[in-house]
């Protein structure tokens, strides 16, 4: 067993013990932490099965050549447009975007397009943006979206070019 996994295991045991004892003795901070944990786990469980089923289907049905053509090297501007649209439709948050990004990567999407997807999934999810505009005004949302998306794409291009030269690889999540 690696040292880092021993530390992680010890942390997990301590956390579980703290929660169990808190619930048992009625220690309110521990109870609140347990409630937070339960509510967020539940929320994620609502989204994750659907997201991973789509990831699995994408993996078996979508050909590598198709992804390479539309999102890979030489896809040009189109690749960026596609992933921004995909990001707009992404539910949940970054925790869903990361496994999706890995799927695109394993099918041959280029790095700058992948980083654009991640950044865009953070800043331009459509339902979120509509909600934002209703509380902070349309001009706020439009400026926020325009500035952040532009900078996301520019930084993703720089990131992609830099990492490509360094033979960077995205892992499957088990690392």
């Amino acid at each position: 067993m690696k040292r880092s996994s021993i530390v992680k295991l010890a942390g997990l045991v301590a956390y579980v013990a703290f929660i169990v004892v808190s619930l048992w003795l009625g220690y309110s901070p521990g109870e609140e932490i347990a409630r937070n944990f339960a509510s967020f786990s539940l929320d994620m469980l609502k989204i994750i099965p659907g997201a991973f089923i789509l990831i699995g289907l994408f993996d078996v049905w979508v050909k590598k050549e198709t992804v390479e053509k539309h999102l890979g090297e030489g896809s040009g501007i189109r690749g960026y447009v596609w992933v921004v649209l995909l990001a707009g439709a992404t539910v949940g948050g970054l925790y869903v975007a990361f496994p999706v990004a890995y799927s695109m990567y394993s099918k041959g999407a280029k790095l700058s397009v992948i980083f654009t997807y991640i950044g865009a999934a953070a800043v331009c999810r459509i339902p979120m943006t509509i909600f934002e505009a209703s509380f902070l005004g349309i001009s706020f949302s439009v400026i926020r979206l325009a500035v952040s998306l532009t900078l996301v794409i520019i930084s993703a291009m720089l990131f992609g070019n830099y990492l490509k030269k360094r033979n960077y690889k995205i892992n499957d999540g088990s690392g």
């Binding site: 992680k8 942390g11 997990l12 956390y15 932490i33 347990a34 937070n36 944990f37 967020f40 786990s41 994620m44 994750i48 991973f52 089923i53 990831i55 699995g56 289907l57 993996d59 078996v60 049905w61 925790y95 990361f98 496994p99 890995y102 799927s103 499957d172 999540g173 088990s174």
Partner: peptide, 25 residues
């Protein structure tokens, strides 16, 4: 096969999810 891939990918990232949930709580 797609469902198997979905399950495997999820299991791979599960420990990280758990750490995130603990952090957020």
């Amino acid at each position: 096969k797609a469902l198997k891939i979905a399950a495997r990918r999820f299991v791979n990232i599960l420990p990280a999810f758990l750490v995130m949930l603990i952090l957020i709580s």
